Amino acid sequence: MDYDRDRVDEITLALLWLTSFKDPVGVRAWKGQDWDTMERLHAKGFISDPKSKAKSVVLSEEGERRSRELFDKHFGLGRLHGNSG
């Protein structure tokens, strides 16, 4: 199947914010997403290596910021009222 991988990466990163939580290491998110997409997000520096025994990945500082922004952009209530980019 052919698809826009950059857009899928963007939506996946946004959804990682939905499943994120803080722990002593930093902000983590459950890694139950498409493996190829998770690998691309790792290569872009947004998350830790998903190839581990952990059930979650650590978001980098940039990954946490972008994840929050993208979640708000695509799913935030402000977008319904024209208040978001």
Rank of each mutant, 00 (worst) to 15 (best):
F21D: 07
E69M: 08
K73G: 07
R66H: 11
L80F: 10
R28E: 08
H81I: 15
R28N: 11
F71C: 05
W17P: 00
G32V: 10
H81T: 14
G32R: 10
V58N: 13
L16E: 06
V57Q: 03
R28M: 12
F46P: 07
G26Q: 06
E39F: 10
K73H: 11
G76M: 01
V8I: 08
G45T: 04
G45N: 01
F21G: 08
V57T: 08
A14H: 05
D23W: 05
A14R: 01
E10H: 01
K22E: 15
L77Q: 13
M38T: 06
V8E: 10
Q33M: 15
F21L: 11
L70Q: 07
I11S: 04
L80R: 02
T37D: 04
M1I: 12
D9Q: 06
R65Y: 09
F75I: 02
P24A: 06
R5Q: 14
R68M: 13
I11C: 03
L16T: 03
R66I: 08
R28G: 03
D49S: 09
D34Y: 00
E10N: 04
R66W: 15
F71M: 04
L80W: 08
R65W: 03
D2G: 14
K31D: 04
E10S: 09
H74E: 02
K22T: 10
L15Q: 08
L70D: 05
D49A: 03
K73F: 11
E61L: 12
T19I: 03
E69F: 01
G82E: 05
Y3T: 02
G78Y: 13
E39W: 07
K51L: 10
G76D: 00
G78F: 09
W30Q: 05
R65G: 07
G85R: 15
D23H: 06
G76L: 05
N83W: 15
I47W: 14
K53I: 12
L59M: 10
G32Y: 12
N83M: 13
R5A: 12
R65C: 07
L41I: 00
V8H: 06
L18K: 15
V57H: 01
G76V: 04
L18P: 00
E61G: 14
L77M: 13
V25C: 13
K44T: 03
L15Y: 07
D6V: 10
Y3H: 08
R79A: 11
A14P: 13
A29S: 14
L77F: 12
L80E: 08
W30M: 11
R66D: 13
S56C: 09
K31W: 04
V27A: 12
E62S: 09
L16I: 04
D36W: 07
E62N: 07
K22Q: 14
E61V: 07
G45P: 05
K22L: 12
K55H: 05
K51S: 10
D2M: 13
E62G: 05
V58I: 13
T12E: 01
L18E: 15
T19Y: 06
R66S: 06
R5T: 12
F71T: 04
